Computed example of a mutant assay.
Amino acid sequence: MHTELHTSRLTMRPVQQTDFDILQTILTDRFVRRYLCDDQILPPEQIQDFILVSEQTFEAGDYGLWLLHDQLKNMVIGFAGLWSFFEENQPQLLYALLPAFTREGYATEASKAVIDYCFNKLSFPYIDASFDESNIASLRVAERLEMTFLKKEWIDGSPVLFYRKVNSAVA
Rank of each mutant, 00 (worst) to 15 (best):
I51S: 00
L52S: 06
L52Q: 08
S54H: 10
E55Y: 04
E55I: 15
E55P: 00
Q56W: 06
Q56I: 15
T57I: 00
T57K: 02
F58W: 15
E59H: 07
A60D: 08
G61M: 07
D62Y: 09
D62A: 12
Y63T: 09
Y63H: 14
Y63V: 08
G64W: 06
W66Y: 02
W66F: 03
W66D: 00
L68F: 01
L68E: 06
H69S: 03
H69Q: 05
D70R: 04
D70W: 01
Q71K: 12
K73M: 04
K73H: 01
N74V: 05
N74E: 10
M75R: 11
I77C: 08
G78R: 09
F79E: 08
F79M: 10
A80E: 06
G81K: 08
F86N: 04
F86E: 00
N89S: 13
P91E: 06
P91R: 08
Q92F: 10
L93K: 12
L93S: 08
Y95I: 10
L97N: 14
L98Q: 00
P99H: 05
F101A: 13
G105V: 14
G105S: 15
Y106R: 08
Y106L: 08
T108W: 11
E109C: 02
A110Q: 12
S111T: 02
S111D: 06
S111R: 09
S111P: 04
A113V: 08
A113L: 11
V114H: 15
V114D: 13
